[in-house]
């Protein structure tokens, strides 16, 4: 079942001779439950692609459908609500809110949605993430690996249709990188979470079902990694 469809997606910066085509006429689709890795050299347009898929950037042309919803046809409010319910975002630099403690950061999308927190579910998630004894801490009181785990938890708390991760291990040592990837794999395998992970690390890419290689704003290759 198709979860994500991208058609003729373009993102240009600037105008005239100075115009930079970060993404140019990109099309692909992702099935529900798929784990897709996106690789490419620096400046190839990977992050731009992820921002556009997450609805946090403005596109120049094209369409992005997530679960049949054209993201860029939604008004700002509807897009914000769609994002907090259906899309989870994980960044290289964790991007937690420093004024909120771990528990509040984890449940942020729920709180914004005005929904009650299911304590059992939260406890389970915290245990899976290995941060159950850090719930009252502020982000700066955590290690990088812990912060990234909170960030993953925040992205998954609403059980979104799509989880987008931009270099989730880029700021971590190899031990923490392994733990984070194990977590992502866990949610993919056990919960059937659809994953799109941008990475430079081939070892991570190898763990995906499919690898899309982006070069100069185009999809250079789109191939299956694991049968």
């Amino acid at each position: 079942m198709e979860l994500l469809r991208v058609e003729h997606l373009s993102r240009y910066y600037g105008e005239g001779p100075a115009q930079v085509k970060a993404l140019d006429d990109v099309s692909f689709s992702v099935e529900k439950g798929e784990f897709v890795a996106i690789m490419g050299p620096s400046g190839s347009g990977k992050s731009t692609l992820m921002h556009l898929l997450g609805g946090v950037d403005k596109l120049t042309a094209g369409q992005v459908w997530v679960q049949g919803t054209d993201l860029y046809k939604l008004d700002e409010t509807a897009l914000a609500i769609f994002r907090r319910r259906q899309i989870g975002l994980v960044y290289q630099f964790y991007n937690l809110l420093p004024v909120l403690n771990v528990r509040e950061n984890l449940t942020l999308p729920l709180l914004l949605d005005g929904r009650n927190v299911n304590e059992t579910q939260l406890e389970q998630l915290a245990q899976i993430l290995g941060i159950q004894d850090r719930m009252k801490h502020l982000p700066h009181q955590l290690s990088g690996g812990q912060q990234q785990r909170v960030s993953i938890g925040r992205a998954l708390i609403t059980s979104p249709a799509l989880l987008l991760a931009d270099e989730p291990t880029g700021n971590l040592d190899s031990k923490n990188s392994g733990e984070v990837m194990a977590l992502l794999r866990y949610f993919h395998e056990k919960k059937g979470q659809t994953l799109l992970v941008i990475t430079h690390d081939e070892r991570i890419a190898c763990q995906a079902d499919r690898l899309i290689t982006v070069e100069d704003g185009h999809i250079a290759r789109d191939e299956a990694v694991r049968p």
Partner: peptide, 16 residues
């Protein structure tokens, strides 16, 4: 600005 960006990315509505 970055924190506000995060909040918006997590889905805070313009009104909120």
């Amino acid at each position: 600005a970055r924190e506000y960006g995060i909040l918006r990315s997590v889905g805070i509505t313009p009104a909120d």
